[in-house]
Design a protein around this nucleic acid. Sequence first.
DNA 1: GATTTTGTGCTACTTAGGTAGTTTTCGTTG
DNA 2: CAACGAAAACTACCTAAGTAGCACAAAATC
Lengths: 237, 237
Amino acid sequence: MYTNQNLFVKYRSVLKSCDFFRELNEEKWNTILPHFYEETWTKNTCIINRKKFLFHFFIICRGRIKMYRVDANSEKEHTLFLLSKGDVFDVFCLFDGDKHRVYYECLDNTRVLAIRMNKLRLWMAQEPQFYPMFLQYAARIMRKLEKTASELIFTDISTRLLKLILKNINKDNQKLELINNLPNKELANLIGSTRAVVNRHLQKLKKNGSIEITRNNLEIKNLDLLLKELEDQKDSS
Amino acid sequence: MYTNQNLFVKYRSVLKSCDFFRELNEEKWNTILPHFYEETWTKNTCIINRKKFLFHFFIICRGRIKMYRVDANSEKEHTLFLLSKGDVFDVFCLFDGDKHRVYYECLDNTRVLAIRMNKLRLWMAQEPQFYPMFLQYAARIMRKLEKTASELIFTDISTRLLKLILKNINKDNQKLELINNLPNKELANLIGSTRAVVNRHLQKLKKNGSIEITRNNLEIKNLDLLLKELEDQKDSS
DNA sequence: GATTTTGTGCTACTTAGGTAGTTTTCGTTG
DNA sequence: CAACGAAAACTACCTAAGTAGCACAAAATC
């Protein structure tokens, strides 16, 4: 077990990158960190455990976790958010204590910091100066969701796929990050399509030389070509 | 001009139905109401005026206002929310002061209560006990948006149209409310489709006798048939 | 290193929904 | 009440995307 001090030092970079608690300095962190504890989940773990789900709040230290919905009828999946280092969940549950028709699954071996929700709620009430920060966070998420929803209506699948790829290219080294080693099926879930269709479009990008695909790896070969492709699709619509 | 007291009396039922301020009693209302003033907008008014948009917050007293996004390329519209009596906007703007890639347009002659955003923010900071209420509100909206987004992926247009209709039927008198006198084009914007397609599906419902359509009026003829229709579509997917 | 599982690539087929265009109907307005 | 404009109704067409199925290859598992 780590002391508060140690926990802050150990996860400094995680906590710094945590948008949800953006304004906290080390001193403030240490008023709440003692209530957190570390937890490790293996790849493919599903967080559907009602109790844990409702009563705990998590900060992701490493690994990716998808937040997704499942259609009761068709068994289709829709990945709403792909969470990683510095992201938190479940915020909405924290805010209103309601259960959430949403699932979480680890795409990697994952390390999180966990806290009982009532502890966190209590802390929030004791530090009301941070409420505006939480409201701001909520607003940011909301805008993202709005954009996601409209994008589903406005743009076709090849465009959504292109945007997904471009969004996850590291500007510095031109490598694909975050979504890089996901199977076609997971990419499909992210943009609201199916494995076969995603693959069809990836093949096209491969053929024109903008990307290269090996199993579990997508390499950017020609970023300019990808950008041009996106422009062309805009024009033709 | 009304005094605080009068404003509360005049709009009692609006304020009572206002989810955003759910927990306020008359006394509390009167600490903020003096900063509100009434405004009337005619049908088709667009609230894109940057200044007003960024610096004011509104409670709708009567009339409908659509909150929508526009695709820069295709000029397509997507109506995210259809606001009416008791609804407020723009919450996200209130929370983070950021501009919002979103438009508002009056579908009827509209009456609102308006307040300068900084006044409201100040009041919120002075009454921190209400912050959890705002967070809860944010969470509710968020869940709605999540559902909207996933629905766009999971269900086809005829189902989305059916659900839209069923959602807006008054249980008591079986009449269609809120969306009743909207043109097909607006219905299309609500579910992410086009006028022609919406009309196509409406014709089908008309033919099987579940609804009747006259200009600017949609009448429910057979609710059970509509519900059965929805079930059938679930099965066939 | 054999076997199973998982992901990929590809073909052929089907269909819902977008598009374009015309006609008809209705309601508003001059 | 005439004429105009907007919404609705309908036809015909086209295409993107979903579906199903199979073959193959790479990993993971034992």
